[in-house]
Amino acid sequence: MELELKNVSKEFKGVHAVSDVSVSMRKGVYGLLGVNGAGKTTLMRMLCTLIRPTSGEITWEGKNILEMGAAYRDVLGYLPQDFGYYPDLSISDYMMYIASIKGIRPMAARKRTKQLLGQVGMAKYEKRKMKTLSGGMARRIGIAQAMLNNPKILVLDEPTAGLDPNERIRFRNLISELSDDRLVLLSTHIVSDVEFIANQIMLMKNGELFYEGTTEELISSMDESVWHCTVPKNKANDFMARYLVGNVKTAPKGAELRILSKEPPMEGAVREEATLEDAFLLYFGEKAGDIDDTEI
């Protein structure tokens, strides 16, 4: 089980959406982290043979995926970021239709649909029309359809975007449940989504994949330490300009800051254990404002 990208690039009329990405993926959950516009979706669309790389090659078990065609798509499951469906079909009809274009026989498809709808907690809505579903429900159907053919490669593009915190936790568990014995590639810009379930983290920025490793490796690769300190309110902005600052909490005594720095930023700063979120802050630091916004 090996999905390999060799110097893959994608250019859209002068925009380098993906630049020279080389990576090899095997069984396990891969978390693809990157801010908006980093190129995650573009990379995934190439993996799903929706678009052709401008240059480079993607192979599955050593064979070019575009040349493999249907044989490759047979082992692929995909939940697009912008998951669209046929609004007037009922859930079960939708599942049966997707099953049919995935080449699953009606008998098997019916069984599989039932099982998957149960797994994603949608069995009781089977007869509902797709257009009546909430965003979270539709996303669950999205996962279920991706799983119909029991894919070896499961590509999930921001599966948790727009979900409420409870739903997001449920989703995370569902994904981890489904990740047995397959390669799952999961993109997000929310660190907590992948912190616990991903074996491997990949960081993407401006189309480049600049880091790949386990969570622990990523955290220990940081030169900076994490400090917790309380500063007077009027000094907070000063600190935020000088240091990479994570969470900011206003307290009666001043502002509590979580700062990334090699040296203690001030006297009395308490050193804390670094998390994946801190690594994310470090690597995508200049966009600190964005990251906070996207947090729960």
Binding site: T49, A70, L76, Y78, P80, G84, Y86, I101
Partner: peptide, 22 residues
Amino acid sequence: AEEFRSRADAVFFSSKYGRTKA
């Protein structure tokens, strides 16, 4: 046109027979 109208194209074309039998 339905796939494009409802943005179901990504799932359709990444399915096994999306580009052939379907």
